[in-house]
Design a protein around this nucleic acid. Structure first.
Lengths: 189, 189
DNA sequence: TATTTAAACTACATTATGTCCTTTATCTTT
DNA sequence: AAAGATAAAGGACATAATGTAGTTTAAATA
């Protein structure tokens, strides 16, 4: 199955889009393979030619989102100041979400944040650990570097999630201001 | 259906235990109602007399865990210092997990932390918000009180999760020491 | 335009679900 | 301890969804 074949691309896109649309209405578990196929105007046998079940489709869709976030994060590579790095990380993250609001909202609604957290958290966590390795951060006397990272990634991510909530009163700029205030300047100590 | 009837209690317990055992082997999605019933030696029609599907069973099991954590957290009610409150919160949380290690490990394995996060996060978040209301915390000039709470609950929870990881090198005391160091003393400012 | 290959169509076997009814066993109550 | 109540077991069935296979049709590639 040639993944560059236009027909393949079309069907996969149709499946992705239909899946995210259906997730606006119901839980992933309630969605049947036949539902997706009917709405996407794709034959069910074609579906099974690509994916062995709906979980594989979801995983593929999620991987796409992850990949695009990862590539956006590459812009954040050469920042030496840690606080600045975090603020930039979260700014990229918020932009990413804003641009794909439709998809992320579908995922959030009725899916209890879990998938959301899986998607994003993996990527952010991975990026922070990449940075840790690159800088060869030594552990402070008091706290190992990766624990320090866990602390701030958890904090920052959790605040950022407020932005995603339906009818959130906060703008992207609000969130960034709050974090600017909350993250200490001497975060590396 | 009388929930105090010994027969009811027995079957429900059997279902809970079997479900968590099966989750050591496979994803929740892969587990079929008939799998649970066979292993639990419960007739499938009996299952349906209690729950309309496996999701209801899982929800019930999760609610049990939440309830026990909630009741343990009541001990943390009358602490005025915020930092102390957080440290105590996480200490109770770590003990809770330690005592039910089997169940939580089953949940963690193959379920990508999601359920875990749903279970625990809800309860901790709820507790912090309860405290916020009780203290009638006023917003600081810079950051709303609930954002401040999000920041530290995310931080603290994420560090605590390290303790749950398989083969974690950290003891409960390590985690608490790290947090003691990372949480500022003047957290209310 | 010829060739390749993905998608559509059709049919089928299998599994899991959810419901219903009857019988049996167990718990509660007095 | 016995009677009555009710939960569990057992069996049967209709339905829905899955996953697979083979053939035909349509679309993309080279």
């Amino acid at each position: 199955m040639n993944k560059n074949d236009l027909r393949v691309i079309k069907t996969k896109n149709a499946l992705f889009e239909t899946l995210t649309n259906l997730m606006k209405e119901k839980t992933f578990e309630e969605i049947k393979v036949s539902d997706i196929c009917n709405k996407a105007l794709i034959n069910r046998s074609t579906f099974y030619a690509h994916y062995s079940d709906k979980y594989e489709l979801l995983a593929d869709a999620i991987q796409n989102l992850k990949n695009s976030l990862i590539s956006e994060l590459k812009a954040n590579n050469n920042i030496s100041n840690t606080k600045e790095y975090y603020l930039n990380l979260i700014s990229i993250f918020l932009n990413h979400i804003e641009n794909k609001k439709d998809i992320y909202l579908s995922i959030m609604i009725n899916n209890r944040n879990s998938i959301m957290i899986d998607i994003i958290y993996d990527v952010l966590d991975h990026d922070v650990n990449r940075r840790l390795k690159e800088l060869e951060k030594k552990d402070t006397q008091k706290v190992p570097a990766n624990i320090l990272a866990k602390f701030y990634i958890g904090a920052v991510f959790n605040v950022a999630l407020e932005f995603l909530k339906k009818d959130s009163p906060y703008t992207k700029e609000d969130i960034l201001n709050y974090l600017d205030y909350l993250i200490p300047n001497n975060i590396d100590m």
